[in-house]
Design a protein around this nucleic acid. Structure first.
Lengths: 243, 243
DNA sequence: CCCTTGCAGATTGGCGCCAATTATATATGA
DNA sequence: TCATATATAATTGGCGCCAATCTGCAAGGG
């Protein structure tokens, strides 16, 4: 019998927390209490600590000694840096993608796009986050370079953190879907310039929107720590809106 | 009194292990036994486990259930991928570096180059690894983009893993030093094309050398696991020679 | 009435223990 | 003599416990 071993439980919990953060269950700035997680996910506190330690290494969460782990908050400046980094790397990846794309890889990308279309109809935050990641992951895989794909995937994951609950708003999803279609079309007709342009627009769209809605988003630093805060203290910040 | 807290000990040990792997004390494929590390570095096994868990998340080491953690071995193909990823990203970073370099940043780069020169004289593997990283880190910092720098730093760190003991060989260090000088000079006279060329040569030099020394480097997979293996079972593999 | 101080509850930090698993050494038989 | 089975030692895996530390509340003093 393959009893669920530690490593499995740890990796599983880590994935759950990752999804929870992407989907909005754990907003940026919220504390991840070890006891609560252990009980909620039915694992021991030992496993919880391991998963938190690993997530801290990825800088998805931050560790404050003697206070615990909390979902990392990315400042506006840091998000601009993340966007710029994605822009630089993804633009540079385009020639590789064009040169190495295979029929199988393109089929996978089309399938991912279709999944995103269906998620866009349901307007479910978690599903949107997952299928959006899957689509971009499929595109990155076209380079046939796992190291490169890993880097850009990490950048996207960090930048999108916390965008979940505020995503299905306005025409954001529709516009994002249109841009995804545009990127795939550029790939299919071997047009690297068009693909780079589409990527540029896709990644920087949130900045224009951010500029219109003015600034002033005090992220309620510190705040309540211990004491049961209802497990889901959804902070009323303005959503990041990164894609 | 600031008694060394857990978080400090953990981060310190992680850095020690990182240096040990870069410097050649822990060759690729060697097992990191928890008891030995706890005694050697004077910390508890709890701290050791935390550090190993974090390093495993970075893919510097791999975790084999019920057998332990061992320094990750990168295949020739994977190292080609790492090199290609660095090539793509660092080339794309050049315009940013040119546009944003500050006098302070350039001074830091010059200082790092000087440190590498001194380490090159001593031919000490660990010192070479450290100063080499510091130089490239200084260059990456010229982009003023922490996210971008982090990505390329990780790629370099992975690719250089295990190159330590086999580094001070032949004219490798002298050539590397000359290329570092070339890169800095290109930066100082605002010549992006020359910088890109220097980076290209710097990153791909090991491949030419690899091609001449033929192939066939069975990394002695598996191998002895438990039982005290002298703490330093330096495997007689051919050194990677990445820069 | 407000500020300071002390107390209690809650959470994290660190460690030791023992079971589970694996590798090595030994014994046994063909 | 070699292959196989068994016993033993070494190592990792997981967990519970208790101390250290922080937060929030209440009591007391100015």
């Amino acid at each position: 019998m393959t009893e669920p071993t530690h490593s499995n439980e740890l990796a599983w919990l880590q994935e759950q927390l990752r999804l929870g953060m992407s989907g909005g269950r754990f907003p940026a700035g919220s504390w991840l209490r070890q006891d609560a997680l252990a009980e909620q996910y039915g694992v021991s506190r030992f496993v919880v600590r391991g998963a938190l330690e690993r997530l801290a290494e990825l800088e998805s969460i931050e560790h404050v000694p003697n206070r615990g782990y909390r979902v990392r908050h990315w400042s506006l400046e840091e998000r601009h840096e993340l966007t710029e980094a994605r822009l630089v790397i993804e633009q540079a990846m385009v020639p590789l993608m064009m040169a190495r794309k295979t029929p199988a890889g393109m089929a996978e990308a089309r399938r991912a796009l279709h999944d995103f279309e269906r998620a866009a109809e349901s307007l479910d935050g978690e599903a949107l986050a997952m299928t959006n990641h899957a689509f971009h992951r499929a595109l990155a895989d076209l380079t046939e370079n796992a190291a490169l794909a890993r880097q850009v995937n990490w950048l996207r994951e960090q930048g999108l953190r916390g965008a979940g609950p505020g995503w299905p708003k306005a025409g954001g999803v529709a516009r994002s879907l249109a841009e995804h279609r545009e990127m795939l079309a550029a790939l299919e007709r071997n047009d690297p310039i068009a693909l780079q342009g589409a990527i540029q627009r896709h990644l920087t769209a949130w900045q224009e929107r951010q500029a219109t809605t003015a600034a002033g988003t005090r992220p309620s630093e510190g705040g309540a720590c211990h004491r049961k805060n209802g497990a889901n203290p959804v902070s009323p910040r303005t959503p990041p809106e990164m894609i």
